[in-house]
Design a binder for these strands. Sequence first.
DNA 1: GGTAGACCTGGACGC
DNA 2: GCGTCCAGGTCTACC
Length: 294
Amino acid sequence: MPTLTLPAKPPFSFRSVVYSHGWMQLAPFVYDEPSATLSWIDRLPSGRVLEVRVREALGGIALETAGRLTKAELSELEARAAWMFGLQMDFSEFYARARREPKLANAEKSGRGRILRSPTLFEDVVKTILTTNTLWAATKRMTANLVTQFGEPLPSDPGRHAFPTPSRLAAATEAQLRAETRLGYRAPYILELAARTASGELDVESLRTSALPTPDLRKELMRIKGIGGYAAANLLMLLGRYDYLTVDSWARKMVSQEWYDGRPVEPPEVEAHFEQWGQWKGLAYWFWEWSNPS
DNA sequence: GGTAGACCTGGACGC
DNA sequence: GCGTCCAGGTCTACC
């Protein structure tokens, strides 16, 4: 397939999206720094498993993959890439406010705002659950185990796998997910999510285009077992809703150092510092230039 | 609605 | 080497 170029609404920075959070370190994503190329193994709804490679292009992204795709597959791939990189997202209102805040003065120039998403929201929900109450190294390990053990292999290189489908995960046992995938107590959460999604009882992908007010959407996300306040806020950010903060231990530490001289702070104190940003507070917090990041 | 205690795992740390 | 703490929290029971 020839390289496909997809335009993005300016300002756009491929690097800013890739480094927007840790997702690019999670399987099946692979980021090659020298060539500045993000690649992953994807499984399209048609059943085709392929490697997708994306790099920056003038005004957007350049996407390439091997083999001939049908028209429907090509269209699906374009839609996925547009969603993952938020190509048409508009942050002009956020930038207008950020220009008046020294700690966010570089946001527009650096094209900050877009946050890397996975091809499906199901994958993002699973990964988000795997970030809770654990170290980042363990999140990477659990995700890699899931992909290797349950993802469909790339035909031309069976050692590489796509993210597992809901039905494949639903067919796993809790014992397997605990003992072999090392998910611990998160195993029943992942299993229940996969089973509800595979059966059609839960349509997580529909939440991408939900018109629900953010508090209602948050409640909807929190009906998924394993998704609490932090995880819901993270998923809302991925959905382009920034009204809630992802207040975790790292956030508390940053706010403590920034405004409280290192004294331990609670979530309400973190919230208070970004309240004035209204619907943009999640982004203001996320891209804040902390004095002592660690 | 608010709070205490349990929960897998594994790296970091103190002894 | 061993015990304890805790991390990009959440759930359940109880009040």
